[in-house]
Amino acid sequence: MRIEDCSVEDLAVLDHFMPSNSVDGNHRARFARQEAGDSTYLIPWLDDRPVGHAEIRWTGCAAPEVRAARPGCPELNGLLVWPESLRSRGIGGALVRAAEQRAIARGIGLMGLGVGEDNPRAAALYARLGYRPTAAYVDRYAHLAADGERHECADPCVFLVKELSLPGRSVKPS
């Protein structure tokens, strides 16, 4: 498996293998944020097929509760391993580690991510990787139904944070 930053050539392949109905989390929107310098859109590849994605939002989480609790903390957003049959095989953990490496390369000693209260499996993975609860918040997003109708969603979540070890600097427990 390899993990690469998304390229414009990847967009059609992503749409084919992992169509998205998210309004602001679709592949083109994530790639546009990457092109603007606001994020890095990571794609894991297995046998020349995309098997997931994750976006590092260098601008941080949009939720005001999280911004107040952890100002300036980049957010790993939209982590997905697809198809589901590939979950629990290390791809999600590899995406998290790839995001951490990119943050360290930028001199950033912190990474955060949100997890839905109804997703204990993902929460267990993040805990194993060293992420600790910081703030409760509601993740608000929109998606388009098959008929094109927009649906607003609000999911209770917890924002988790991990202190990263920067070269030449020790990590303080949070």
Rank of each mutant, 00 (worst) to 15 (best):
I108F: 09
G148K: 12
G52P: 02
N26A: 05
A154F: 01
L79C: 10
L95Q: 07
S88W: 09
G130T: 13
L80T: 11
H27R: 06
V171L: 11
D5R: 14
G90F: 06
G168Q: 07
L144D: 06
V66I: 12
L46V: 12
E84S: 11
G130H: 09
D147E: 12
R67I: 15
R132Y: 08
R28A: 13
R106C: 07
A29C: 13
A103V: 01
R89Y: 06
R33A: 04
I3F: 08
C6D: 04
G92K: 02
S39N: 06
A136Q: 12
A63M: 15
I43C: 04
S7H: 11
E100K: 01
A32G: 08
A63N: 07
A12G: 05
R106K: 14
L110Q: 11
A146C: 12
G114E: 02
H53E: 03
R128T: 15
G37E: 09
V51A: 03
V66E: 00
R89H: 13
L14F: 05
L11V: 14
R140K: 14
A12C: 06
L46S: 13
V96K: 01
E75V: 06
R57V: 03
W45G: 05
P83W: 07
A98R: 00
A94I: 00
R132V: 14
S85F: 00
